[in-house]
């Protein structure tokens, strides 16, 4: 081996060592970055645990139920609330278990009923969807039973006034019976009707109507004027304001 070759070999060796050292350094640096990231991740969990306050209580309704008075004094015929000849129809797509629907019935419905339904400008219809769980299905069927007695709205509003935690199993036959009785519905008749095929049809009809208008979350309010139905509002917002704009 010549001197030159020896020099080059030594140089190559040195470069290889340097490269290996650099790779080691990079690797060490990357592991310490990941270590820091892991520490940050653990800090995130600790902060999350400290900041979150557990205020979630299993709010299963108990004792005497509250009767909703929001539809008192408004005539209902076949699920239609208000003057059947009112020129405009507002339809609410709901799920009885949906907490936002219960909120809307407290915050939005009273003004809507007082200002528009009682004055004969608007009639209200209701479509009970039932996508949240088995309790929604049973409740919607009993609601169909209440509709047979022209008490759909009383039943639904009283249900909302006593709504429990979604899918916690509170909507038992006994609960539904209590809601019906509190709302002035013949509970036996409504629950019997809930077991019939006819009540199933009411649910299917609600689903088809929801699909047709594209209502895929609850509550959805729609407005029907001159035979044209369109979505007015989704959620528990100010229905009256939206309605005023649409009229």
């Amino acid at each position: 081996m010549t001197k030159r070759e020896l020099r080059e070999q030594a140089r190559a060796h040195r470069l290889a060592l340097e490269a290996a050292e650099a790779a080691r350094t990079t690797r060490r640096r990357r592991f310490s970055i990941l270590g820091a990231a892991l520490a940050a991740a653990i800090a995130v969990i600790v902060v999350a645990a400290l900041v979150s306050t557990n205020s979630n209580s299993d709010a299963a309704p108990s004792g005497d139920l509250v009767r909703s008075t929001v539809v008192d004094g408004v005539p209902e015929r076949n699920g239609v609330l208000g003057d059947p000849n009112a020129p405009v129809t507002v339809t609410e797509y709901v799920d009885l278990q949906c907490p936002v629907c219960a909120e809307a019935s407290k915050t939005a419905l009273p003004a809507l009923i007082n200002d528009y339904v009682k004055t004969g400008k608007v009639k209200l219809e209701l479509r009970t969807m039932h996508f949240l769980g088995p309790d929604s299905v049973k409740s919607a069927r009993v609601a169909a039973g209440a509709q047979q007695q022209n008490k759909l709205w009383s039943f639904v509003e009283t249900f909302y006034a006593n709504q429990g935690t979604e899918n916690s199993g509170y909507a038992t036959d006994e609960f539904l019976r209590d809601v019906a009785t509190t709302a002035g519905v013949d509970a036996d008749a409504a629950l019997d009707y809930a077991d019939t095929d006819a009540s199933e049809q009411a649910l299917t009809k609600a689903n088809q109507a929801a699909q047709a208008i594209g209502a895929d979350s609850t509550p959805t309010f729609t407005i029907t004027q001159d035979g044209q139905e369109k979505v007015l509002l989704v959620g528990a917002g100010d229905v009256s304001a939206e309605l005023e704009k649409a009229l």
């Binding site: 979630n56 936002v100 949240l132 769980g133 899918n167 959620g235």
Partner: peptide
């Protein structure tokens, strides 16, 4: 303020409305 469309498991609203 709506409720998410919730297939398979039905707890979306519970989760979204929780504290």
């Amino acid at each position: 303020g709506g409720e998410p469309v919730c297939a398979i498991a039905h707890g979306c609203a519970t989760v979204q409305k929780s504290s």
